[in-house]
Design a protein around this nucleic acid. Sequence first.
DNA 1: TTCTTAAATTGACAGGTGTCGATATTGCTG
DNA 2: CAGCAATATCGACACCTGTCAATTTAAGAA
Lengths: 123, 123
Amino acid sequence: MPTTPLTLSDPHPASAARRTSCSSRDTTLHLTADEADRFAALSKTLGHPVRVQIVDLLSRYGGDVCVCDIERHFDLTQPTISHHLKVLREAGLIDAEQRGLWIYYQLRPGTLDGLRDWLDHLK
Amino acid sequence: MPTTPLTLSDPHPASAARRTSCSSRDTTLHLTADEADRFAALSKTLGHPVRVQIVDLLSRYGGDVCVCDIERHFDLTQPTISHHLKVLREAGLIDAEQRGLWIYYQLRPGTLDGLRDWLDHLK
DNA sequence: TTCTTAAATTGACAGGTGTCGATATTGCTG
DNA sequence: CAGCAATATCGACACCTGTCAATTTAAGAA
């Protein structure tokens, strides 16, 4: 029987003076789960180069941009572009408006504000 | 035989005055493929709430944070946290430094600058 | 009403992602 | 050296993603 009991349950015993110790800082999370989920979802939406280009295009050409003006820039089929637009729409980043046969897209203002602010204040 | 030939090949004929037309703006992409790829890759890396929290934690606690101080905040197994750290490492967002048995992580400065600037100048 | 065109939807498929349990690696300690 | 503790890696598996061809939907135009 050992004279000193095994302290298997405590990974950072203050009593273990011999140990170099990992300093074990008393960190706490400062983002809520909801904030982290939201930032992650928005980031994921921007996680494809075609969607990055579409967002950039809509940003630069302000008003409304027709789907056919988006499609022409990419070497992808029409359903694939339509899929990326749907991903952006469902994330709340862009809005669609139908005029006649055509559908125009525009950036929805404000959606990226939270993510942008978080990135701006990092480090 | 029709007197007016079918113009199947031209989706936006200037001659079709009767047509409302989608205005067909002369848009061009302003991001290079490399920039879009880079922003997308970084965004993808931030596309998981656990990685968002890890980045935020490392940002707030400046210096070095031990893996065990990261793990305690999540209800996930050690290999899963290790996986997320690897994803962040391989994207160049964080750096690891071993001291004794422990491994300390820190945010690598500058990696997110391009993405941040892009977001800042959107719209 | 029928035709045409723009865009969305569907279904399929290959490849990627997140998670875990099990195992390996590495460094300290006795 | 042997044992232990912190972290990484491996292998498996369910689920998600990007892409395309085929089809559908919806809005003019004839």
